[in-house]
């Protein structure tokens, strides 16, 4: 018989412990089904691909913002990251692992401008069962993940824009992270004071 956990009369969400590290994983097919419905729902409510990207990113922002503090207290020694590279590593490793069960594949800095970084993911979870029609080849569901990353970085006060696009025969997704100038300036100042 399935054990039903009955809620006590006065118990609120504040009496329960935080969702723990021991992964409460969601079935991939369940996730894919839900996500496909999300995409279809939004697709009917937009007139352009850019709008669809924006809508998916908005949903991702909800996730990103809520991950910040949760991941911070799950850490054995909670701390705030103050440097750009450290926070990007944190995203590549910890955030990706929690959300997608694996680390992001590569992290690179653009050679032309110091404010731009690229995060590469070879098989984005959200794209696993997605096939994009030829006439909309610039569409990428990973806009959802870009929104997550953006909300995370903006939340920890590294304001930036994040864009997702496909590279290499449409399999790998790159997330282009462009920080605002103030972030770069602050990072330089912290570097100098070290």
């Amino acid at each position: 018989m399935a054990a039903v956990r009955r809620q006590k009369a006065n118990e609120t969400v504040f009496d329960k412990s935080l969702p723990s590290k021991s992964k409460p994983e969601v079935n991939i097919s369940t996730f894919a089904f839900l996500f496909s419905e999300v995409v279809q729902y939004n697709q009917q409510r937009v007139t352009s691909l850019a709008q669809l990207h924006e809508k998916l990113a908005d949903l991702g922002r909800h996730v990103g913002f809520r991950m910040i503090d949760l991941l911070c207290v799950r850490d054995r020694a909670p701390k705030r990251e103050t440097r750009i590279v450290n926070i990007l590593w944190f995203i590549q490793k910890t955030v990706w692992k929690t959300l997608f069960g694996k680390e992001a594949d590569r992290l690179e800095q653009a050679t032309a401008t110091e404010a731009t970084y690229y995060l590469f993911e070879d098989e984005p979870l959200v794209n696993k069962f997605v096939s994009v029609p030829k006439e909309q080849s610039s569409f990428n569901c990973a806009a959802f993940m870009a929104g997550t990353v953006e909300a995370f970085l903006c939340g920890v006060q590294f304001p930036c824009r994040v864009k997702a696009f496909l590279v290499k025969e449409q399999t790998t997704t790159a997330f282009e992270i462009t920080f605002e100038d103030s972030v770069i300036e602050r990072d330089k100042r912290l570097e100098a004071n070290k």
Partner: peptide, 16 residues
């Protein structure tokens, strides 16, 4: 309080 605060903001209806 930090722990309580996290529980409060994890609410999907909470606007950041």
């Amino acid at each position: 309080v930090y722990e309580l605060f996290i529980k409060a903001i994890l609410n999907p209806f909470y606007v950041p």
